[in-house]
């Protein structure tokens, strides 16, 4: 899965989708942005800062958070602990401060817990705050993962197939939820998706990838009409539509 000669620009406060058939390089693209892979050539800029060569933890601090295609929560931590881990970068308690339990640490912990609870409430998980995340149902795990990503206070949130494995009702709920993320919190969202229906419904701009190259870019309507896309992607038959 390689990505080559890709040029994507993401506007602030949009929902920007990246689609493409399996193996088109979508997840690789994500891994490059979030610092897990180092691109051999090319630039990745966030508000004119270069991200290339930075470790993933630095990139998070600059404001890019992600979720994973095959949910990767911390299974033996509770839901609220998962969210609190997401806040790590914004907390400042020092080692000595923690041991002495200074007033600053106390206050910070309290604030962090409040914020975590608020986030859990936002994703409808406040009742399950003390459950181990591995025991949560599938849909809850997806939303918890998003809550954890939100806890890092991102400017750009990268969602990797957030509706994978969901039925149509759950998918619709997830779409509404994603839209509310942008509308209520003002976060720019980049979405990797497999399902055309989801993408067409919520995104402002769509980029189509194929074999690691950009095939087309535009509004949902433009994409729908683009002959190259129809040929390479939709043209695979109605199978993709029905997916």
């Amino acid at each position: 899965m390689a990505v080559d000669g890709l040029d994507i620009e993401i506007e602030e406060k949009t929902i920007h989708s990246v689609i493409g058939p399996n193996g088109a390089g979508k997840t690789t693209f994500f891994n490059c942005i979030t610092g897990f892979y180092k691109p051999e050539a090319g630039e990745i800029l966030l508000e004119n800062h270069s991200l290339v060569g930075l470790m993933p933890d630095r990139i998070v601090r600059l404001g890019i958070a992600r979720t994973y295609q095959n949910i990767r929560l911390f299974p033996d931590l509770t839901a609220i602990e998962n969210v609190l881990v997401g806040m790590h970068a914004h907390l400042k308690s020092s080692y000595l401060g923690i041991i002495l339990n200074t007033p600053f640490v106390k206050k910070e912990e309290q604030d962090a817990e409040d914020e975590a609870n608020r986030l859990l409430k936002f994703v409808n998980l406040e009742a399950k705050a003390n459950m181990l995340s591995k025991h949560l149902p599938y849909g809850d795990q997806r939303r918890l993962e998003i809550a954890r990503a939100l806890a890092t206070r991102p400017k750009l949130l990268c969602l990797d197939e957030p509706t994978a494995g969901m039925n149509s009702g759950e998918t619709q709920a997830m779409c509404d939820f994603i839209q509310s993320l942008r509308d209520d919190l003002g976060i720019t969202i980049m979405l990797i998706e497999h399902q055309m229906r989801v993408v067409m419904g919520i995104s402002e701009i769509i980029t189509v990838l194929d074999y690691g190259k950009k095939l087309a870019e535009g509004t949902p309507d433009e994409i729908k009409r683009n002959p190259k896309v129809i040929e390479a992607y939709l043209g695979q038959g109605s199978a993709a539509q029905a997916h």
């Binding site: 933890d57 990767r72 911390f74 881990v85 790590h88 308690s93 080692y95 923690i98 041991i99």
Partner: peptide, 27 residues
């Protein structure tokens, strides 16, 4: 004291999944 603090949680996150811990901003 460390167990349920910012540092303790970072440790536990590393224990569970190092890559993800890093992607959550843990050095």
């Amino acid at each position: 004291r460390l167990k349920d603090s910012r540092i303790g949680r970072a440790w536990k996150a590393m224990r569970e999944d190092e890559d993800v811990a890093q992607a959550m901003g843990i050095n």
